[in-house]
Every structure is written in C-alpha cells, then in structure tokens.
Design a protein around this nucleic acid. Structure first.
Length: 500
RNA sequence: CGGAGUGUAGCGCAGCCCGGUAGCGCACACCCUUGGGGUGGGUGGGGUCGUGAGUUCAAAUCUCGCCACUCCGACCA
C-alpha cells in the first residue's frame, strides 16, 4: 500500500517495487533492476547480467548440463561467425532468421583522414560477409558433413553453451535481448524414429528441469505449423504461464527431419552399405528461463527463488549489537548446513544495518534468513524467516538445522504447488468465439478451444485477438467438436494464449 | 517502420507555459546518533541541462533541425 501511494505521488523511493497490480511490465523491470539481476548496457537491446543474475543462470546451466550428460550428450564449441552463404542453404531457415541478423562486413578500422575518430577501413572489406549466429544449425551441419560417414558415427549427440544474437526490434531484460546466452543441442541419428525419440527425450529433460528445479509447471506440447522453428518438421515446446496471464515459451526441441542433412549433404552408409541422409534434432533453452523464473514466483517485495536455484539458500544476519559471541553460533550452524549440502552465507558486513540487509536479501529472493541477536544468544534460539510466505519463527539452536533442511524442501514444493494451482485454474475451455474473446480479455491464461487445423484460422485469431496457438498438448485427448472461429469440424482442443 | 512520450548529478524527478545563468529526494563521503524490519541529525562532493543552429543584452526555458531512449504496434527464444 505504501508503494502504491508513493507511486502516485511521483516520488519513488529508491528501492520500492511497483506493485504487480499497477503495471506488470514496470513491476518486472523493477525486480530485474532492484534484485541486482541485470542492467541495460550501452548497446541497444543488450543487457549486462550482474553477478546475482548470472549466479542463477549458472545454477540452471550446471543442472541442465548434468542432465544432458546423463542422457549421453557431450559439449563442444562452434564459431560465433557463420558465412552468409551457409544461412541460405536451407530455404525455410533463412526465411525465418534473415530479418534479425547482425552482419560483419569488415575486419579492420583506421583513423579517419579528417581526424574525427576511427572509421571502417574500406580496404578491409570481407569477401564474404559473416553473420553473427542467430542459432548454429548451419555451421554445425556444415561441420557434421565431415564428421559423419558411417552408421557407426551415429548417433552424434552434441551440445554447445554459447551466446547468440538476434536483432530484435523490441527487447526486455532476459525475456528478449539482442544477445543472449543459451545452450543448443544438435544431434544426428540413423533413423527417423530415433530422432523423434531424441526430440521428445530432450523436451522431457526441459520439462523436468522446469518443474523440479525451477518449481515452474509447464505444458508439454507441439507447435502448430505457423509457430514452428524455421527449418523444422516438428517443434515441441514447454509452455509456462506467467502471473499476468500471458504464456511464455520456456524451451523448444525440434525434429528437423532430413532438412539440414540434405541442405549440407550429410550422408552416411548404413549396415547394408546404402547411402542415406541422417535425421536431425536441435533443442535449446536460454537466459529467458531467468525471466520465466522471475515472473513465476516473485511478488511486490522482489524476487522469490526456489532453493534449488538460489545462489545461496540461507543467509545468516547478525544483529549488530550482538558482538562477537554470535560468530560461534553462526559458524556452528554454517558447518552443519554445509555438511548437509545446504549453501549458506554469513553476512558480517558491519557497514550495513540488519534491517537494510533483511530488505536487501528479500529483494534478491534468498529463500531463508537466519537472524541472531542478543535475545537469541540468551535463549539459545535464532529467528528463521522464509521468503516465500514471509513467515517468521523462533527456533531452538538444537533443531534449527533440521528445521532449515525441511523448510527449504517445503519452500521448493510449495512454490511449485502454488504455481501449479495457478496454471490449472487458468486453463479455460471455451466453445464459442465470443466466449474465447471474453475469457481472453477478462481472465487471460490458456484457452482450450477447438481449432480446424488451418493456418488461416490461426492467423485470423491472432490478428483479431493477439492470441496464438501455444501448443497442441502431448497426449491430447481426442474429442469431436467444431472450430471456434470457422465452425469446421475438429478432432481436438488446442491451447491459445497471449504470449511473451 | 507507424502511433505516443521523454532526454536536467549515479538513479528518480521538479524547474520550461511567463527567458535573468540550476534545485529536490535517494545514493555517495565524513562526523555524531541509532542498532530484533530500509535509524535520526549535521556537513560536504558531484551537472558544458541529449545535440547543432537560430532569436535575444541574456536560453534548461522560445524556434527549427538532428540524435538517443522508453512505451504501444509489426517481429520474436
């Protein structure tokens, strides 16, 4: 309420966060900035990821990387530059990405003849321009041609962690930036079945990660033709629902068929010594996941992190008047927590007041706070405060470690349960176009509606309502009905939503 | 690229209508105070007012051009 009033007085306090109810976009930007996640950079559309934001990304990266390795993948690295001609080898692919590519045309600067600074040296023009990768299919498949000769070379299961550039017209921190960090897996298989299996396997890796680690429930599905990746035969995706009722595509896994193998002439000899093109997949998630995390759990006091992604899970804040006696207690708790694999920071910075630290760690989303003051030392207790519910409790030193352990688990699961309840209650079946528009405007979320399967219908709905088909859920129940727009017969409902 | 808006200290803004050489809050530095939820008080540092031209004795303020950014569209992980 305080923030609300202050907001309209126009004298924003330095660290208040705009309430979600006032302006969701401002709320989001406030959290990014005030939780210390990212800053705008000097380059339009790019962001500086600050240590706290990067630490969250690192947690995500490490967890995902372990999952990739557990499913037989290895990491490699390919160049950031792609010769322009590579991009045009696959027709749909170039069509999809041409409009958002950064292009390198020269390789040298020189002093301007008029002394006004540095200019591009015209004599250093590249014979062939280089594209800064918007995704790496082309350069990777150009390499795979040399790596694959026989079925014995398959499957080829490679992932790369990289940065990519897509020159977007409008950007938002983490959700859409001109440069972003991601991983992209690129695999080659001997058969269609194997490649499809891989595509679905990796989709499930993403979905499990989102649900178990990010505490963010997702819908697994497949994209309509309109929304498919440029060059894919099928695009599988996980879709999440943000707190403002808009959907967010959190990860994609593509079955590429033989499109890239044909474009880059990647053939192998099978056991019968017959030549065939290999079957491909690619799959990726990006720093957008950090944005998804913010919008799934955070509140008007700042970021809320699930314990599995918090750069540290517990912070111990001594009350300044306590003196040095608190050190022994704090170190004892720290040692016990660390023995249990729980990460903890003891904040001994005596230039900041404890109340300031409380607010600071709340904004940064640290799941649990332990405060130790004189009162506690006398009573052999500490104060435990959880970020998600704001609940505070006084706990005996004898049970504090166990309480922390179980509370962290509880935070992880209750964040998921809360988000899951929100998702479930925001999938609304509708049976008419009027109802469709009504729900979209008043409630938002996913709308489950019959669709005639045509791109024309999808385009018209998008044009009229801004909603797109987010996905056709996997294992979607079949049900006879009629398309909400055209009235043509339909065999299943699909999920529509406005999306980020 | 269309529509709207904004550029004044690190951040957020006032001043502009009505021209007279720049101010507030936060942040920052120092002193005292306070210390279980962003202590209170004092002192101080920091700005060619986005940029170029024009009008004027005088421009943050008026006029024109340019640039940048933000928001809403189109595009999109």
């Amino acid at each position: 309420m305080r923030t609300f009033v202050v907001h309209f007085l126009g004298t924003f306090m330095a660290k208040e966060i705009t309430p979600r109810s006032v302006d969701y976009s401002a709320w989001y930007n406030d959290i990014v900035s005030k939780a210390g996640l990212a800053d705008h950079s000097a380059v339009r559309g790019c962001m500086v990821i600050k240590p706290h934001g990067y630490a969250i990304w690192e947690k995500m990266r490490d967890d995902l990387d372990a999952r990739f390795k557990a499913t037989g993948h290895v990491n490699a690295y390919f160049p950031i530059f792609i010769p322009k001609s590579f991009l045009s080898r696959e027709a749909a692919h170039v069509e999809g990405f041409a409009k958002e590519c950064a292009v390198v045309t020269h390789h040298r600067l020189m002093n301007a003849p008029d002394g006004s600074g540095v200019v591009v040296d015209p004599s250093a023009k590249l014979e062939e321009e280089l594209i800064v990768r918007p995704t790496s299919e082309t350069i990777i498949w150009n390499t795979y041609r040399d790596w694959i000769q026989s079925y014995r070379d398959l499957p080829l299961l490679i992932n790369q962690w990289a940065n990519i550039v897509r020159w977007e017209m409008r950007t938002r921190p983490f959700l859409r930036t001109a440069e972003f960090l991601w991983q992209e897996g690129h695999t080659a298989h001997a058969t269609r079945e194997e490649a499809v299996e891989e595509t679905v396997r990796m989709l499930n890796v993403y979905a499990d990660f989102a649900e178990q680690v990010m505490a963010m429930p997702v819908i697994r599905g497949v994209k309509s033709a309109n929304e498919r990746f440029a060059g894919a035969e099928d695009t599988y995706c996980i879709e999440a629902l943000m707190q403002d009722g808009k959907a967010l595509q959190a990860g994609t896994s593509h079955f590429l068929g033989q499109n890239f193998a044909k474009a880059f002439d990647v053939q192998f000899s099978n056991a019968q010594n017959q030549l065939d093109y290999v079957w491909a997949t690619s799959w990726g998630v990006s720093t957008r996941m950090v944005g998804a995390l913010i919008m799934s759990h955070s509140d008007d006091d700042g970021l809320v992190l699930p314990p599995k992604l918090a750069p540290f899970q517990v912070v111990i804040v001594p009350i300044p008047t306590t003196g040095e006696a608190v050190d022994a207690v704090a170190h004892d708790i720290m040692n016990q927590l660390q023995a249990l694999g729980i990460s903890v920071r003891y904040d001994t910075d005596d230039t900041k007041r404890s109340g300031f630290k409380f607010a600071e760690y709340e904004m940064r989303g640290i799941p649990l706070r332990v405060a130790i003051g004189k009162r506690d030392l006398e009573n052999r207790t500490v104060e435990l405060a959880r970020r998600d519910t704001k609940e505070k409790m006084t706990v005996s030193l004898d049970t504090v470690v166990e309480t922390i352990r179980t509370t962290l688990d509880d935070i992880q699961s209750s964040l998921y349960n809360r988000a899951k309840a929100f998702l479930d209650s925001n999938i609304t079946p509708v049976n008419s176009y009027a109802e469709f528009k009504e729900v979209l405007e008043t409630k938002g979320g996913f709308i489950s509606a019959h669709w005639d399967g045509t791109g024309e219908t999808e385009d018209r709905i998008k044009e009229e309502t801004k909603a797109t088909i987010r996905c056709i859920p996997l294992n979607n129940p079949q049900e006879a009905g009629t398309c909400v727009l055209s009235g043509a017969p339909s065999t299943q409902r699909v999920l529509f939503a406005k999306a980020y």
